[in-house]
Computed example of a mutant assay.
Amino acid sequence: MLSARQTLIREELEAGTGAAIGMAVDGSKSRTGLRIWFADLEERYGPVAEMRPYGLKGYAVTLGFGAFAGEVVRRIAGAGSEDVHLARALVASVDSSVEVEVQGQEMADWKITTGDFRMTAIIRNLPRDPEVALTEVSRDTIVPMMAAMAELIGYDVIEEDDHGEPEYEGAELFTTVRRRERNPRNRLLCIRLHGEVCACCGLDPRETYGVAGSIIEVHHLEPLSLLKEPRPYDPARDLAPLCPNCHRAVHTRRPEPWSLEEVVELMADPMGKAGIL
């Protein structure tokens, strides 16, 4: 079943992590599994997630490191506090029904210092439809785990910038990954924390456009370029979901964008009678 649905799994993982994904079927154990890694690092040199059936309607996902991943582990061990915070938040966003453990560490403050690191997730009672089940496991469990690794490694995204914000988000550029969002991990966390309803106009794109409605964008409430001094990054308070129209409207004022409250007032009083303009 896993081997026949590699394309489905890869598409979910690449959309969520913003990185090219490599994978291979692993028949070395009694139940056939799938090994997943970042394609540009190759299986031996970076983090590897192993996915196998578990029980009657479940999967087990174990994340560790390849045999020659020392350089990447050292890079991760030196990640900044903001990247560590975001990586932990990504893993913490996994649904509470999934049993997630880090070998020998507490989940609240796990860290990677050696190649012996192991994170395991057990997902039970999945839907009977195999494609629905694999989509759920990929999107809701493997994506946050691998996205956390991408954040710690320093994967970032270069995009044409039309909002007056910095080209880069997060840590030092490690590789170039072209996606619509500058950091797809931010979009993942924003949606998990706040949902997909626009914080300004209340539009739920999926209700309006159906399968074409995955268009919610991520807005930094305090633009990175305007930070007076570094402070801890908190995805719960620093990000907001906006529809494309409201996101563009927010950034029509520069260098300091309109606040969400100001945009809501503008929509209620477009002629500026309230004196915002």
Rank of each mutant, 00 (worst) to 15 (best):
M145C: 07
E50V: 13
R139F: 06
S259H: 05
D129I: 08
V263W: 06
E43I: 06
A171P: 04
R124F: 05
F65W: 10
L126K: 10
E106A: 13
N125E: 15
R44M: 08
E106W: 04
A60F: 06
D95K: 10
P47I: 05
G202H: 07
I142H: 02
L152I: 01
R206V: 14
V263G: 05
R5H: 14
F65G: 10
P230M: 09
M146E: 11
E265Y: 04
H251E: 12
A274M: 01
N183K: 11
S81M: 12
H220S: 07
R237C: 07
M271G: 04
G66T: 02
M146W: 07
F65S: 01
T208Q: 09
L189E: 13
G78C: 06
S30E: 13
A212K: 08
L224N: 08
S93Q: 11
Y54V: 05
G164M: 09
Y54C: 06
A79S: 15
E261W: 03
T62E: 08
E256L: 06
T62V: 06
V177R: 14
A87H: 04
E181D: 15
D204I: 04
G115C: 05
G27H: 04
N245V: 07
V73I: 15
L242I: 05
L189F: 06
D238R: 08
E151V: 12
E71P: 00
S3D: 15
T208N: 10
L2K: 05
D140M: 09
A24H: 05
C190H: 02
D129C: 03
I36K: 02
I158T: 04
V137W: 00
V197H: 02
R74M: 07
R52G: 02
D162P: 00
V263R: 09
T135M: 07
H247S: 05
R187Y: 03
T135K: 12
A49I: 09
E14I: 01
A24G: 10
E82W: 08
G78Y: 05
I191A: 09
R10L: 03
P270S: 11
R254M: 08
L86C: 09
E167R: 05
D204S: 14
F38D: 07
K111V: 11
C190R: 14
V73D: 02
N183R: 09
A77V: 07
G164D: 02
R185L: 10
F174P: 02
A60L: 02
L90S: 15
M119N: 06
E222G: 03
K111R: 15
H85Q: 11
I76F: 09
I112D: 04
S81K: 15
K228L: 14
R124T: 04
Q103E: 15
R128Y: 06
M51Y: 03
E12V: 09
V61S: 01
V218D: 07
K228I: 03
L242T: 11
V100L: 00
T120S: 12
S30A: 15
A19Y: 00
R118S: 15
M267S: 10
K57R: 14
Y233A: 00
L266H: 11
G78R: 01
S93C: 14
F174M: 14
L239T: 14
L224M: 11
A77C: 03
L227H: 08
G70E: 15
R5I: 01
A60P: 02
S214W: 11
V197L: 07
E151Q: 13
M271S: 12
